[in-house]
Design a protein around this nucleic acid. Structure first.
Length: 792
DNA sequence: TATCGTAGTGTTTTT
DNA sequence: CACTACGATA
């Protein structure tokens, strides 16, 4: 008995040594490896560190955290550890490892994060501690994990394993079609509302039949009908929308218990981050996967639940101990991010919410300066205020990349962009139009999806006549009718067009489309993803079409798309076209957030979740904006308050809140009033100045000085880029990561070695033309292509 | 069948 | 204001 006690004490010491960077609460969470655990982690409480360390613990020390599991006699084990303690950290780790009963192997660990970026970051932090072993763990979003499972097994419930993923736009279009075919007036039942309702059902794991049964009022019945028909069409096309990825995984588990068994056995340890933003279906998935081992650790903060509009429910957190009565709870309340003033403000605001689990952040750090509050006349002045403060911060030594402007809605970014462009401050906007949502990219994606899945009528419709093949609406509808009658896909109708008298007139055109697709498919079977994309752009005639239209921006976009494919080929374990398509359909805005790039970040508060910045600006702190009008009308102010809480707690040192007296909305000026949330911050924390002491920018708005958005592979229209460059001329942009001159020898990860032919500045980026030794000449965006200079 | 023009419509937030 | 969708015309 004494030996056991001695061993357990010394083991504790060893653990404390290994995890010395943690505070007591954090240690609790890291050590409690077995059984269900709920971590209530406040903003900035170091929960990612806890998560990483916990996984590290599981992979190295295994069940050792249970004192009665050691294989070795207690006395011997204790001695071993004691000796190790004398010999430094590495020795302690080795000793603990040698005593581990059965540490988890990487593929037994499942980590579900909110974004793919978070998953990557998580893996790389783990990689620093574990090396390559970290690559083996399952880390990703709910959606990407489900895709991984479904790609392997969805055939068991009647879908093709090469299913297509529909994005919000595809979904909307399909719903529209359904409404039309069911003769439901869009005025009576708007497609948007319908799509939202369907999504709501799926988030709650309600299938069409059940929706029909529960429908009370007439409109609900029709929605249920649309839902059923929509699902039928998805199935016919072997397509899944975002919600289906979760829902069909659940269905798969229900209909094929052995599949669930397989995964539930595999995942000995499950971690879910941002648990407050999960919906009931996702919760069900976690519980299902955790049923064998019950080592489920969820991390969340009820105060940061900001996605209920997407079906997320805080109840998942609150009912975690109902699902697991033996669950332990650890609260992390010590904040390592923000100053005392900022935390006090955040606590003050959130305390106005009812029904919280109750949690108060505190810090041992410094108090910090007061929150700067400003009231401006117009949004232009507000933008100017932000601009002037950023300049001041920057000359005071703050890096641009440590500054963020966080707004309630994307529309608020415009005036700020304009001001920053004028002042030549580098910035980056997240959100708005995504790269993969651009027309030309979506068109090529449509061709690629058809290669994998011919049954996808929606994508077929998109490109059957792009570029022009003289196949018009009448022909397309004729094909659709035949397909509907014969219960088959439009593509198979086209394949047999020659035998159909009603299609005789367009037969040759259809045949040529058919051949295009089949040849693309043949090509893809024996080539890389990048080559397949390049081939698709050429062989479909898309490249010629753009050349004819002299649309060089789109041409460049497509070239970058090829590069994206090349990057995927290089990075993926088993690169294939389906994998590539799945990956790009699940990317989020902040996935492209690059903390290296020295630029001010502009994004919505939602996108800023999980990020932190030295200085934060929150413009538009007005009734009707933040909180939003919608929330005021429908009693959703508490969620807005949580959103405000999230916004405030992004700031480490400095916080600026501003509002205007008159704001442009719908192209009209409307008087505005200050947000009710501002009053909830105690006056002694605020430094309020009504008058504007900075100098107004002398130049008024001129149409040519439109803001330019920087996207990963893309600069807006050609014209805008020129304007941007012109404005920037006198004082060149943030230093590019590398500068090349014609004649330089460079190396590219995929294309190999080559010589720089041309180097052209484009905004904050540059276009480099390289003639590679393998004979190819490529135009590459500097920020995207990882070019290395080689010495001669 | 394709293109151009206009009228109507709509703004939270997003995997 | 900005975007989309649809209809009229060539």
């Amino acid at each position: 008995m004494d030996d056991e006690k001695r061993y357990s004490d010394i083991k504790r010491k060893c653990f404390d040594r290994v995890f010395s960077r943690l505070n007591d609460r954090q240690k609790q969470a890291v050590y409690a490896v077995n059984g269900p655990l709920l971590v209530l982690a406040g903003a900035g409480s170091g929960k990612t560190t806890v998560l990483v360390d916990r996984v590290y613990n599981v992979l190295n020390f295994g069940l050792l955290s249970e004192s009665d599991r050691a294989d070795v006699p207690f006395a011997a084990a204790a001695e071993k550890l004691e000796a190790a303690l004398q010999n430094g950290d590495a020795a302690v780790k080795d000793a603990l490892r040698s005593l581990a009963v059965r540490p988890a192997s990487p593929d037994e660990v499942l980590c579900i994060t909110f974004t793919n970026k978070a998953a990557d970051e998580f893996k790389s932090r783990l990689g620093n501690m574990l090396g390559e072993r970290a690559d083996g763990i399952w880390a990703g979003t709910f959606h990407s994990i489900c895709v991984r499972i479904l790609r392997r097994s969805i055939h068991k419930i009647g879908f093709s394993n090469s299913f297509t993923i529909y994005d919000a736009d595809d979904t909307r279009k399909t719903i529209k079609q359904v409404l039309k075919d069911l003769h439901i007036d869009e005025k009576y039942l708007p497609d948007k509302l319908c799509a939202a309702a369907v999504s709501r059902y799926k988030e709650q794991q309600i299938l069409p039949e059940e929706a029909k049964l529960s429908a009370r009022e007439g409109r609900d019945e029709q929605i249920a009908e649309v839902y059923a028909e929509y699902q039928a069409r998805l199935k016919a096309a072997s397509a899944l929308d975002f919600d289906d990825l979760i829902l069909n995984t659940l269905t798969l588990f229900e209909e094929s218990p052995e599949t669930l068994e397989y995964y539930a056995k595999q995942f000995r340890y499950i971690f879910v981050d941002e648990f407050q933003d999960t919906n009931p279906s996702q919760n069900a998935l976690v519980l299902a996967l955790g049923k064998v081992w019950r080592n489920v650790c969820v991390v969340g903060d009820d105060d940061q639940s900001i996605y209920s509009f997407r079906g997320a429910v805080v109840e998942n957190i609150l009912s975690f101990d109902t699902a697991y009565p033996d669950a332990r709870t650890v609260k992390l309340e010590q904040n390592y991010r923000s100053t005392g003033v900022i935390l006090d403000a955040a606590n003050a605001v959130i305390s106005h919410n009812k029904g919280r689990k109750g949690k108060t952040l505190w810090t041992g750090g410094e108090r910090g300066g007061k929150i700067e509050v400003r009231c401006l006349y117009t949004q232009t002045e507000e933008a100017d205020f932000i601009r002037s403060q950023i300049e001041e911060l920057h000359s005071g030594g703050e890096k641009y990349k440590d500054i963020a402007v966080l707004y309630r809605a994307n529309a608020l970014s415009r005036p700020i962009e304009t001001a920053l462009v004028k002042a030549r401050i580098p910035y980056r906007v997240f959100g708005g139009i995504k790269y993969y949502e651009r027309k030309e990219i979506k068109d090529i994606i449509a061709y690629l999806s058809l290669i994998c899945n011919r049954a996808d009528d929606l994508r077929l419709r998109r490109v059957i006549n792009v570029p022009r093949r003289a196949i018009g609406d009448t022909t397309i509808e004729k094909i659709a009718d035949i397909a509907a009658n014969e219960n088959t896909s439009m593509f198979s109708v086209i394949a047999t067009a020659a035998r159909r008298p009603e299609l005789a007139r367009s037969c040759t055109k259809l045949e040529s489309f058919y051949t295009v697709i089949e040849e693309l498919a043949d090509f893809s079977a024996s080539h890389t993803v990048a080559e397949t994309i390049a081939n698709a752009i050429e062989a479909t005639g898309y490249a010629d079409m753009l050349k004819e239209e002299m649309d060089s921006d789109r041409e460049q976009n497509l070239r970058d798309f090829v590069s994206a494919g090349a990057l995927y080929d290089e990075g993926a374990e088993e690169p294939n076209l389906e994998g590539f398509l799945a990956e790009i359909s699940l990317v989020s805005d902040t996935d492209s957030y690059d903390s290296q790039e020295d630029a001010v970040s502009l994004m919505t508060v939602h996108s800023a979740k999980g990020l932190e910045f030295g200085s934060v600006f929150i413009p538009g702190f007005e009734q009707g904006i933040f909180p939003s009008q919608m929330s005021l009308d429908e009693g959703g102010v508490e969620e807005e308050r949580r959103l405000a809480y999230v916004a405030v707690t992004r700031a480490k040192r400095r916080l600026y809140i501003s509002y205007t007296q008159s704001r442009m909305l719908y192209g009209m000026f409307r008087p505005s009033s200050v947000s009710e949330f501002l009053d909830e911050i105690p006056p002694e924390l605020k430094n309020f100045a009504q008058k504007t002491y900075y100098r107004r920018n002398e130049f008024a708005d001129t149409p040519s000085e439109r803001p330019v958005r920087h996207h990963d592979f893309y600069d807006d229209s050609h014209r805008a880029v020129e304007d941007f460059v012109k404005i920037k001329q006198p004082e060149p942009k943030p230093a590019p990561k590398a500068v090349f001159a014609p004649g330089d020898r460079v190396e590219h990860a995929i294309f190999g070695k080559g010589t720089v032919e041309e180097y052209e500045q484009m905004g904050g980026d540059a276009l480099v033309t390289v003639s590679f030794d393998n004979g190819q000449t490529k135009k590459l965006m500097l920020s995207f292509a990882k070019l290395k200079k080689i010495q001669i």
